[in-house]
Design a protein around this nucleic acid. Structure first.
Lengths: 157, 157
DNA sequence: CGCCGTGACTGGAATCATTCCAGAAAAGGG
DNA sequence: CCCTTTTCTGGAATGATTCCAGTCACGGCG
């Protein structure tokens, strides 16, 4: 779909325009909130909507909760973000898309980290009997305890 | 599975004692609601808490929502039930425990079905870098469309 | 075979993440 | 620069689940 006739951005606009590019290429309008949401998720993978709201407000000033949810949906729909929702915890968003990586979730504090299966290509992603379902994605979630929760007893929360 | 040395007890009390046994063995008290919850999930795998409430009420008469949630927690904690929660849908409970089977979830209607990985023993359940997490369970969820939703356009909702 | 204490159930209110709504503001094609 | 469409604002609503205080009953004990 998206060809790569990437114009070598203005020699003064580092990656600032990167987000803009991403949005335009995805056919989305470029808005301050959307750029801020993308920025918020850089270096803060697996943030909850609430985390993003806080970060964005810290960045732009005042932004409504809906604006953020709206962006998260739009960006997720456009494939710029990936959404994952550990059972019993609010949804989390990340910018690592495309590669089909998986997640570890801590039963204690809910922390999430990325993992790559040792088996390179989609391993057990081909169940025997699919009951007639047409599959398009396999999602793997590992449950356990993070280093912190494994040693000391579960934290406050 | 059901053996046939069934005492022709009162019409309606065939394996009635089975649930009682399960509960006692698990160190749980035997109560009407708990038995009804177990019964409700027989033949109705992947029911939501709400489904269970309806079925149990249909069976016992009037039961509070909490009683059911309480039971579902107790039974899940005792290992008699398994809980799974597809992103964006209410939690579902099933009686298939012990075997580490996985699930297919329909993006259209949220229907859930069991699947067994073709790769017999825990396949990709050994990620390379676990980031120090101590893992204890791998959960695999396949997303796609059920036969119904694949043909006709998505239902109401 | 009835009494008692602990654990289970009732009813109602509360919480949390997320969504719905209607109107105001802004993006960007013409 | 204007107009249409999409996005953002603020506030209310929803749905699943939980918290709470009081009542009830399972089942061990006498």
């Amino acid at each position: 779909m998206t060809s790569n006739h990437v114009v070598p951005a203005a020699p003064g606009a580092p990656q600032a325009a990167a987000g803009e590019h991403l949005l335009r290429d995805a056919g989305l309008r470029v808005t301050g909130v959307r750029l801020a949401v993308l920025r918020a998720l850089d270096g803060h993978e697996h943030s909850t909507a609430d985390d993003v709201v806080r970060t964005v407000r810290d960045d732009l000033g005042s932004v409504s909760v809906q604006a953020v949810y709206d962006c998260l949906h739009a960006l997720t729909g456009a494939g710029l973000l990936r959404r994952m929702e550990p059972a019993g915890h609010p949804a989390r968003y990340e910018r690592r898309v495309g590669d089909n990586h998986h997640h570890v979730v801590c039963r204690g504090c809910g922390a999430v980290a990325d993992v790559d299966c040792v088996v390179g290509e989609a391993p057990c992603l081909m169940p025997g009997d699919t009951h007639g379902f047409t599959l398009d994605l396999a999602e793997v979630t590992f449950w356990g305890l993070c280093p912190a929760c494994a040693t000391g007893p579960a934290p406050a929360r």
